[in-house]
Design a protein around this nucleic acid. Structure first.
Lengths: 202, 202, 202, 202
DNA sequence: TATGAATGAGTGTTCATTCAT
DNA sequence: TATGAATGAACACTCATTCAT
């Protein structure tokens, strides 16, 4: 009975296909103006098929956010090890910035789900989840560096850092590669500036 | 013959009414999902009337952005005078933050036009104009404080500061009043942190 | 009490003004796409005023058709006298064509009411009246030339001639003046061709 | 696997259905006042379905014009063969008139697209195409009969003949069947009259 | 599973007409 | 009389979602 697994494999491929298509369309049009029919067409599939895998447009966005979350997790895991936490601040910040920028560059749809404030209220949920995930990563790093920071300070600091991050990410990603480094430096300075007092206090 | 002026006054009142209604609806639904019929209804007016004053949905958004721009200008003008530029950095930043937060709090639609990346391409223009206006204000303040800063540094610094600003504004405004001050402090620290190196370099 | 007549005179002026405006707008946009608001604006008057003089868009068209009918009558009266009826056929036809073309050229709105087949059913009435008036003129001329033609033949012949007329009028009027004569000649030939058998039969 | 073709067949049927519906509605209301929702309802279909097959109202009109063009072509092809060109003029003209009248009678929407001058500018194109197609047919016949006629005379003559044609078609089609023949005869005489000089000159 | 035709409520916008002033 | 703001039904068109095949 090799039916089942083969079917599941095909199903997995379809989902990937659809998610890829959604990323492309979200990137081109933004979430709100993206149409499910356009996504289906981009995936080379009929609208009906799309709804066999995702209950609705929202579910598609959620799954895409989830995918980004795991890519981010992988990239972070690669960039950090226990020793990293005690690098000089500018270097540490650089290690936080780079993978994020790269994931963003590699996934054009990312920004549409991470940055935008014009998503329908319901969609705030998966989007917020993505943001919470990033905040979580940042918090881990800060926790390793500042073990004595009280939890609520930790949380707040991570949240603010992430928001600064998100704010400049748009500019960084949409800037032509040649000028990109300049904005990355600027982001680095902003984050270092924000974290320096914490560094000194501890 | 008070006829003419009275009519014009009515026209003015209608525009204000419609702009108010648009602000409410944009705030609730975001620009993209806001419907002109909903705005008209919120204004207690028929759809046709809306179109007597505004050529289309976009024009409404433009006028609203313009209103915000001028409210912002007024608030800034009140907060600054030539002496302000040489206040200690945290105080200066506080003077930049407060009016912005207040205008935002007083105008619920603001965020929908200022923050969002999901506006139609055409609308990018007035929205960007709003952003540029804010950046302009910030640049003026920085220019007064750092007269020797080269223009491109000035521009970049103002842009980054404004983006940090915009990023945290959302959190500040949507936080219940009781906890708001905490986030304002955080924003202040972020901006001070970003600007401190400039302060020292000059 | 010179009030009354003066008022009436003003009323007359307004009607002329509005009719002129309607002619311009009908000419530019066609009856169907012409808007009463555009006509009012063209007349330098408010929409309400328009409706003080004409019950609705249709009534405007009717009045305009009536004006054209009387201009046509005047032009015809000038072109014909009892002797004309026995001119050689091509000359007679020429005398029928010329004033019609001139009235058309002088009144750009004419075609919109005379030619078009896309008027609402109700408007067929005034339009048909205009056509009937033209047919009547043609019938008179034919009656003078062919006194023995039975009335129903007369009617039919006049109707057909008028329709041929109307069909080519559009082309003639919209052709640049330099080439106009060529199409007038063609129309002349068509009408002469159609009427020649009648000429010979009698 | 009769799946695909069956679906396509359904699609074809829908298009025919919609075109039929459009013909009916255009005939009743004229192009300008016909509504796409009315056409959909007449076809027993939702508005959305209409737009699955035709991009917009215009496209519907274009497709309808195209259908008429091909019906006309078929009817003409049936009525003419190389020998026809040298029939006595009245018979030749009769052969040109009949199929046109019949196509017109069978397709009530025809007139709305063929005659009217009140179509939107863009629609002028397919409408003109229909007219040009008719003129082309006429020109072919004339070319066969008068091989020595210079091309520009041919063109002009065909155009004028077609316009005379179009002008009387309305009357013919809207006349009750009992009296129809009388008007056909009249149209025949008009065309014969117009063409006789050409016949003699050659 | 996959299809794609079908749905239909809803969108931004228009315009003939009315009416308070 | 004259104004012009106000109306609101109607229009062309869209799109997330469903469902017969």
């Amino acid at each position: 009975m090799p039916e089942e697994p083969r079917r599941q494999a095909r199903g997995q491929r379809r989902m990937v296909q659809l998610l890829d298509a959604a990323a492309v369309v979200f990137a081109e049009a933004g979430y709100a103006k993206a149409t499910t029919n356009a996504i289906a067409k981009q995936a080379g599939v009929s609208p009906g098929t799309l709804y066999q895998f995702f209950a609705n447009k929202e579910a598609l966005a959620e799954a895409l956010a989830e995918r980004y979350r795991s890519e981010l997790a992988a990239a972070h895991a690669k960039a950090f090890d226990p020793g990293t936490a005690h690098l000089p601040l500018p270097e540490l910040v650089d290690r936080m910035i780079r993978p994020m920028v790269e994931v963003n560059l590699a996934n054009p749809g990312f920004k549409a789900l991470f940055g935008s404030g014009d998503l329908p209220d319901k969609l705030t949920a998966p989007t917020r989840a993505l943001q919470r995930a990033v905040i979580g990563r940042v918090a881990e790093v800060l926790a390793a560096r500042y073990p004595d920071l009280p939890p609520d300070r930790l949380e707040t600091t991570a949240a603010v850092a992430t928001q600064i991050f998100a704010a400049l990410l748009g500019t960084i990603v949409s800037t032509p590669a040649a000028h990109r480094e300049r904005w990355i430096t600027e982001l680095n300075q902003a984050l270092v500036g924000y974290l320096t007092p914490v560094d000194q206090r501890v």
